[in-house]
Amino acid sequence: MFKFMGNKRLIFLLTGLVCFFILMGLTLGNRAQMTMPEKFVKDTVSWTQGLFYRPAAYIAGFFEDIRQLSVIYEENKTLKLTLTQYARDTQKLNELEAQNKVLKDALGFTERQKQANNYKYRIAEVVTVNADPYNNTLSINLGQKDGIKKDMAVMTIDGLVGRINQVSEFYSNVQLLTEINDTDSNSKAIAVTVKGRESQSFGMIESFDVKTGNLVMNKVDQADPMQVGDTVITSGLGLVFPNGIEIGKIVSIGLGEFGITHKVLVEPKASFRHIREVYVVEVPEVR
Rank of each mutant, 00 (worst) to 15 (best):
M1W: 05
K3H: 09
K3C: 04
K3T: 02
F4E: 00
G6R: 13
I11V: 08
L14N: 11
L14I: 01
F21K: 12
F21Q: 14
I22M: 10
I22A: 15
M24C: 05
G25T: 07
L26Q: 14
T27G: 05
G29V: 08
G29E: 00
A32C: 04
E38Q: 15
E38G: 09
D43T: 15
T44C: 00
W47S: 07
T48E: 05
Q49V: 14
Q49T: 03
Q49N: 09
L51G: 07
L51W: 10
A57P: 06
Y58I: 14
F62S: 14
R67P: 06
Q68D: 15
Q68W: 09
I72K: 00
N76M: 11
K77V: 00
L79I: 07
K80Q: 10
K80Y: 01
L83R: 11
T84R: 13
Q85P: 04
Y86C: 05
A87T: 03
R88L: 14
K92N: 05
K92T: 02
L93N: 03
N94I: 01
A98T: 06
Q99T: 01
N100A: 11
K104Q: 13
K104H: 13
D105K: 03
D105N: 12
A106Y: 03
L107E: 06
G108Y: 15
G108V: 13
E111Q: 10
E111S: 10
R112T: 13
R112S: 12
Q113S: 08
N118D: 15
V126P: 12
T128H: 10
V129P: 05
Y134E: 15
Y134D: 15
N135V: 00
N135A: 05
L138M: 03
N141C: 06
K145P: 04
G147P: 10
I148L: 15
M152A: 04
V154C: 14
M155L: 15
G162F: 01
I164M: 10
N165F: 04
V167G: 13
L177I: 13
E179H: 01
D184L: 00
V194C: 03
V194M: 07
S199Y: 10
S201T: 15
S201E: 06
M204S: 12
M204Q: 10
S207A: 15
D209W: 01
V210F: 08
K211P: 02
L215Q: 13
M217N: 11
A223C: 11
A223K: 15
P225H: 07
P225Y: 11
G229S: 05
T231M: 11
I233L: 04
S235A: 11
G244T: 14
I245Y: 01
E246H: 03
E246S: 06
I253P: 01
I253A: 07
G259T: 12
V264F: 00
V264C: 00
L265G: 02
E267R: 14
E267S: 11
I275T: 08
R276Y: 06
R276T: 06
E277D: 07
V278N: 09
V278L: 12
Y279F: 15
Y279A: 13
V280G: 07
V280F: 02
E285Y: 02
E285L: 00
R287C: 03
